[in-house]
Amino acid sequence: MHISEGVLSWPVLAGGAAIAAAAVGVGLRRLPDERIPVAGLLCALFFVAALIHIPVGIASVHLVLNGLCGVLLGWAAFPVIAAALTLQALLFGFGGLSTLGVNILVMGMPALIAAAAFRAPWPRSAALRGAVCGALAIVCGVLLMALALWLSGGAAFASLIGMVMLAHLPVIAIEAAMTAAIVGSLQRARPALLQFRVSA
């Protein structure tokens, strides 16, 4: 889901960087001390999940687990995702530093959407809500990636956008299953971890 350097226009890069910086700042202020160990664990999980990735044009397909980050951290998912993406860019060249802001938004905004969706008054099953949130986070991420590409290249990127969307279909199913399994286990063993308030 990383967008490579040299593809997006400067207005998109600058706007993405500014919004991402503000979101990371909000996330840091809303990260309680007792959630720092969870944040560290999720940062490592997020970092490792993307190490096995398949290049698709100027982007890549890999596990993200941003839905899980959102469910457990709310706004605090932004600094977690930002730290992992920065390390991936510096150590492995995934994405790049110029696209860091946009990539943070592409993966961070869906985490926040998943966090809100998980707490909506709907089916009581935590595993079912986790599955929906895991899938929703990838769908939203792909749509945000498509928007960034469209704003930068318009119809010239139409075929690439279609290819990226198609390539992420298996990822949606895998993320749904993994998030459901993890959230279901936490509901049985540590339900307090699922009580994090998005707006706290």
Rank of each mutant, 00 (worst) to 15 (best):
L100M: 13
I113S: 03
A114P: 12
R124I: 02
A115L: 05
F118M: 08
A114N: 11
A127V: 10
A126E: 12
S125L: 11
P121D: 09
F118V: 10
A114L: 10
A120R: 12
R119G: 15
A127T: 11
V102T: 13
A117G: 06
P123C: 04
I113H: 04
P110N: 08
A120S: 13
A114F: 08
G108Q: 04
G101H: 06
L112I: 13
M107I: 03
S98K: 14
L105K: 00
V106A: 12
A117K: 01
A127H: 11
L100E: 11
A126I: 08
I113K: 04
P121V: 07
G108A: 01
G101S: 04
W122Q: 06
V106G: 00
W122A: 10
L105I: 03
L100S: 09
N103R: 02
G101F: 03
M109I: 15
L100Q: 12
P110Y: 04
L105Y: 00
F118H: 11
A111D: 01
P110E: 08
T99F: 08
A127N: 11
G108D: 00
N103C: 05
S125W: 12
A116N: 10
V106F: 01
R119W: 10
A115E: 04
A126F: 13
A120E: 06
A115V: 04
A116D: 12
P110F: 09
A114H: 11
A120C: 10
P110W: 09
P123Q: 07
P123G: 05
A114G: 11
S98L: 15
A127L: 07
G101T: 05
L105A: 00
P110K: 09
I104V: 15
T99M: 08
A120M: 15
V106H: 00
L100V: 12
I113M: 09
P121G: 05
S98N: 13
S98H: 14
P110T: 09
R119P: 11
T99L: 07
A114M: 10
V106N: 04
M107P: 02
V102L: 05
P123Y: 07
S98Q: 14
N103E: 07
P121N: 07
L112H: 03
G108T: 01
M109L: 15
N103H: 09
N103V: 10
R119E: 12
P110H: 06
I113C: 10
V106M: 02
L100F: 10
A116R: 15
A126S: 14
P123I: 13
P121A: 06
A120K: 08
L105S: 00
G101I: 03
R124N: 09
S125I: 08
P123D: 03
R124F: 01
M109T: 11
A111H: 01
L105M: 12
V106I: 13
A126K: 13
P110R: 03
A114K: 12
R124C: 00
F118L: 12
T99N: 06
R119H: 15
S125T: 13
I104P: 02
I104C: 03
I104S: 03
V106T: 11
V106S: 01
A117Y: 03
P123R: 07
R119A: 13
W122S: 08
V102A: 13
P123M: 06
A116H: 10
P110L: 05
A117V: 15
W122E: 04
A120I: 08
L100R: 12
M107F: 09
A111C: 02
I104R: 00
A115N: 07
A115I: 03
